[in-house]
Design a protein around this nucleic acid. Structure first.
Length: 274
DNA sequence: CTCCAGGCTTACG
DNA sequence: CGTAAGCATGGA
């Protein structure tokens, strides 16, 4: 077990882990999570990020995106007083660089669901089909392990109509019929097209995976919350209905906030959580 | 009881 | 093209 004490400016652990981008961290005296099959504990003291984990330091830096130039990003997305106020309030909130497989499954589970139910379903999946790595902590099940299951095995996880979607993509990846990790090398648009071939993945979930796993910062996922916040902040000029309206909002955001609009999305999201 | 949740698929004009 | 019901589950 390694202990890292990382001095880092413009980093704020609490909103980073509680803003809804990750589903498996929990906070007691300190934050505890399972990342890449390994236990990790984290806390912050002033400008110091303190990590207990067997993960190596390079991985930690990558996972928390500690090399992002936040000054540059803030300057780039700070287009008005609304976003400015959110940046001041939650300054140091970082995007997380998640594992693509865990991220994909998590957001397939997010469809028409609540964060609370998503967390519960994912936790049950890990308890039932992951590997136990410590008392009460389990790894995220691999595509191979899920590909061996039948639908009835998944009932205890309470995924509802999303269960067959998870099993289908699991077996496709296990059988090398879908190259999830290859999306890393594609552009935002190409990656989006690839992800949307997956059953249960539309433009919103594709955008989440591109942003939270593949680091495509030009991605701007629009869910019900973001839709409402954007209408409150920037007027009801988005006219289309349902999915089309959300696409209009995403396109507007990409133009308005620019190349780092994914970061703007996370700060806007805090408007509903905070 | 109804309505909604980090939406997507399918069916119907 | 476009829009709208249906979808499992749980909480308000």
């Amino acid at each position: 077990m390694n202990v890292y004490r990382i001095n880092i400016s413009d980093f704020n652990l609490d909103p980073t882990l509680s803003c809804g981008q990750v589903f498996r961290w929990e906070k007691n005296e300190r934050w505890t999570g399972v990342v890449n099959g390994k236990l990790i504990r984290a806390r912050q003291a002033g400008a110091e990020l303190i990590i207990d984990s067997t993960l190596d330091k390079k991985f930690i830096r990558d996972y928390f995106r500690l090399d992002d130039d936040m000054e540059k990003i803030y300057t780039s997305i700070n287009m008005d007083e609304k976003i400015d106020s959110l940046i001041r309030k939650y300054r140091g909130l970082r995007l997380i660089r998640q594992d693509p497989w865990e991220c994909l499954v998590s957001y397939i589970c997010s469809s028409n669901n609540t964060i609370r139910n998503i967390k519960n379903s994912i936790r049950r999946m890990c308890e039932c089909f992951g590997e136990k790595i410590d008392e009460g902590y389990y790894s995220f099940p691999t595509p191979d392990s899920l590909s061996e299951l039948h639908l009835c095995d998944m009932e205890q996880c309470r995924l509802g109509f999303r269960a067959p979607r998870v099993l289908k993509i699991a077996s496709m990846i296990a059988n090398n019929e879908f190259d999830l990790y290859g999306i890393k090398n594609l552009s935002y648009e190409e990656g989006r097209r690839e992800l949307m071939k997956i059953e249960g993945v539309g433009n919103k979930i594709a955008d989440c995976v591109l942003l939270f796993a593949f680091g495509k910062l030009e991605s701007f996922p629009v869910d019900t919350h973001i839709e409402q916040i954007m209408e409150r902040f920037y007027g009801d000029k988005f006219k289309g209905s349902k999915s089309k309206k959300r696409e209009e909002i995403a396109e507007f955001a990409r133009e308005y906030f620019g190349e780092f609009c994914g970061y703007a999305q996370e700060y806007l999201y805090m408007e509903d959580l905070g």
